[in-house]
Write a protein that binds this DNA or RNA. Structure first.
Lengths: 129, 129
DNA sequence: CGGGATCCATTTAGATACTG
DNA sequence: CAGTATCTAAATGGATCCCG
């Protein structure tokens, strides 16, 4: 028995598709965690440095998506040189406590999962002979 | 201050990249939830039907990735016609309780998030004039 | 400094047809 | 039934240059 309203992809406003798909993308979750760990507003450049291999383009589009969803707030100051800071919102602060257990789970199970992947790859290689 | 070991993408075995990136893809989480909701082994075809718009190709590769990570177990029976069933594992059963709050959160905040997106899009349209 | 615009390489997804 | 193979379309990611 499936809880269709919650997980049915045919349900026009399937929450999983609309919400989790976004935090599941490559940089969104990482960005939220960096802001959370910093516990203070961060500038574009600081975020860029905290995520060593994000490109400016991807960080910019990630931040725009987060801002559109009301998960970060963008504060721009009319200064020279310009300064823009990003902060978590009340909405994202209700989300982060749910994300931490997931991060911890990943951390705890990483070694086992990597071992499983290796074993699986070996089995596939054997079967191919 | 950033908990580097946990979230640093430069950390060679960054758990977020290795684990969460995978469950964050388009079908993985949905597949796990369907198996969880079913509470019984499901055949390939049943999964295909539970996820109305997944293609065979995507379901097959999703299941292979889940199997490689030890998050589902594949049981194939030597029958004619062939029968293959997929079940959750002990490992994924420790993960699912962490996923449910996330699904609930998405469900509760979906309307607000969609409204935020709309407002954001309108503001962008205005600014473009 | 904080991006936007553009171009290009790579990856990913889907449709269709086919097989053990 | 449970997939694989192949081809194509589309989305994603990165590099570079430019601007307020």
């Amino acid at each position: 028995m499936i809880r269709r309203q919650v997980i049915d992809p045919a349900f026009p406003q399937c929450p999983i598709r609309n919400v989790l798909a976004r935090i599941g993308d490559r940089w969104t979750l990482l960005t939220l965690l960096v802001l959370d760990a910093a516990a203070q507003p961060l500038r574009f450049k600081e975020l860029c440095q905290a995520l060593p291999d994000v490109s400016q383009k991807m960080l910019a589009s990630t931040l725009k998506a987060l801002e559109a969803d009301g998960l970060v707030q963008r504060q721009s100051y009319a200064e020279i040189p310009p300064r823009v800071e990003y902060v978590l919102t009340d909405r994202s602060r209700t989300l982060l406590p749910l994300l931490h257990p997931l991060v911890d789970w990943s951390h705890r199970h990483l070694d086992d999962i990597l071992a499983s992947r290796l074993r699986y790859a070996e089995q596939q290689a054997e079967a191919a002979e």
